[in-house]
Amino acid sequence: MSLESTGGVPVNAEPVGADIDAPAQTPASPQKGMFGVKGTGDVSGFGGLARRTPDVVGSPKPYGSYFDEVTDALEEAYPGFADAIEKVVVDRGELTLHIVPEKIAEVAQIMRDDESLRFELCSSVSGVDYLNSDARRLHVVYQLTSMTYRRRVRLEVAVPAGGSVPTVTSVYPTADWQEREAYDMFGVIFTGHPNLTRILMPDDWEGHPQLKDYPLGGVPVEYKGAEIPPPDQRRVYQ
């Protein structure tokens, strides 16, 4: 940028101090993560805490509670049950069905329509990033509610980064915005979605902020022409 001016104050003058030792010109620190913390992202000062990566194991039958009824009803109503269900997990009184991603819309259809299942309401669709603990790191989680039987069940699918999952908007129109949010935050592509655009972040945003390898606050702050680097690239006192 040129500071030569034809008189008056240049419109885009560099901020005062920009050429001495102000934060704006400090070379990027080699450290990653906020406040110079590496690895766990632990800001408590106990940097040695290691994140564990627990395996999710399937539960043996019988599952107890209403879970057997739900799985049996789904098995009866859905001929492709064996191919579509990866595992059934019962934990803390909640039933999770891990589904093959390609089959999610079919399963959702049956879960909604079958007389003995009747999950009329799709309460929530959201993503989770299991970085380093699952090769298919992006999970999409569907919380279904049956108002008829007062039951809840969770469907979960896993895809690799940037992977695609069929949309369930044709079964549950309410999933429209929630799938857009999961796309916005995690980059999961929902194939067949009527309008898969960003919803919370600006349209021209780069990256998917909820991914575990996306830094917290990782963008420079612009204010009146001056640019303050993101927290992880500011001066560090150590």
Partner: peptide, 11 residues
């Protein structure tokens, strides 16, 4: 939770 002292994900 992943067993740690921080939430792993809250939606």
């Amino acid at each position: 939770s992943d067993g740690g002292t921080h939430p792993y994900r809250v939606h």
